[in-house]
Computed example of a mutant assay.
Amino acid sequence: MSQATDPNAAVRTERVLSADPRTVFAAFEQPDKLARWWGPSGFTNTFEHFEFKPGGRWVFVMHGPNSASYPNESVFREIEPHTRIVIEHVVKPWYRLTVTLAERGGETHLAWVQEFESAEMAAKMRRISEPANEQNLDRLQSLLASEGA
């Protein structure tokens, strides 16, 4: 599947985190940390396969607070240490997530762009993705704070 080119096919979230890009990047790179914050509030994760390298697979199950399980499979398409990660979610719903990290005076500006296959799919997913992405970043921010970042 090709990357979406329609700006209406994307869901965007931005956040300034109280940690440097190296520390934020480590929260993606280290599976024990990633499992602690990935997903909306109340979710937990079981990672089955995690290869943090370009072309590497990431297979995991998200466990919702309602006891439902959500299988996920993604491929890391690009990794630029401390600056950029591109993840392709290869099961339905398909999307490409681009995370960019920029240093801002000891903090990190994080941009999170989730591109769906069409504007119609983005519109359908937006009501779920927008609050879920904010909760995801709230959990990342909490992890960073708990580690004294």
Score class of each variant (00 low, 15 high):
74 S>I: 11
65 P>R: 05
67 S>E: 13
51 E>K: 07
58 W>C: 11
64 G>T: 00
51 E>Y: 05
65 P>T: 08
66 N>I: 12
70 Y>Q: 13
79 I>F: 04
68 A>C: 02
56 G>P: 03
75 V>E: 09
61 V>C: 10
74 S>E: 15
61 V>F: 07
75 V>R: 12
60 F>R: 04
62 M>T: 04
63 H>Q: 08
78 E>T: 04
63 H>E: 04
76 F>T: 02
58 W>Y: 11
74 S>H: 13
80 E>T: 14
73 E>G: 06
63 H>R: 06
64 G>L: 06
66 N>P: 11
72 N>W: 08
74 S>C: 15
53 K>S: 14
71 P>F: 01
52 F>K: 07
67 S>P: 03
68 A>N: 11
57 R>F: 07
69 S>D: 10
78 E>Y: 01
52 F>G: 02
55 G>N: 02
54 P>M: 01
73 E>R: 13
51 E>F: 03
72 N>Q: 12
60 F>D: 07
73 E>F: 01
53 K>L: 13
60 F>Q: 09
51 E>L: 08
54 P>V: 01
66 N>D: 15
72 N>H: 06
67 S>A: 14
56 G>I: 03
77 R>G: 09
64 G>C: 05
64 G>P: 03
77 R>V: 13
56 G>Q: 06
53 K>A: 15
68 A>M: 10
55 G>H: 01
78 E>Q: 09
69 S>G: 07
76 F>I: 01
78 E>G: 05
74 S>P: 14
70 Y>T: 11
64 G>V: 02
71 P>T: 04
72 N>R: 07
67 S>N: 13
66 N>W: 02
71 P>W: 00
56 G>N: 10
62 M>N: 04
53 K>E: 14
52 F>A: 04
51 E>Q: 13
78 E>W: 00
63 H>G: 04
68 A>W: 03
66 N>T: 15
57 R>S: 13
61 V>W: 06
66 N>E: 15
53 K>M: 10
62 M>H: 00
74 S>W: 14
72 N>C: 11
56 G>R: 05
79 I>A: 05
79 I>G: 09
64 G>W: 01
52 F>E: 05
77 R>E: 15
61 V>M: 05
76 F>D: 09
69 S>F: 00
51 E>D: 14
66 N>F: 10
63 H>W: 00
55 G>C: 02
63 H>K: 05
59 V>M: 08
59 V>Q: 15
57 R>I: 15
57 R>D: 14
67 S>F: 04
51 E>S: 12
76 F>C: 04
76 F>N: 11
63 H>D: 07
60 F>C: 05
75 V>W: 03
52 F>I: 06
56 G>D: 03
56 G>S: 12
51 E>A: 11
56 G>F: 07
72 N>I: 09
60 F>G: 08
56 G>A: 09
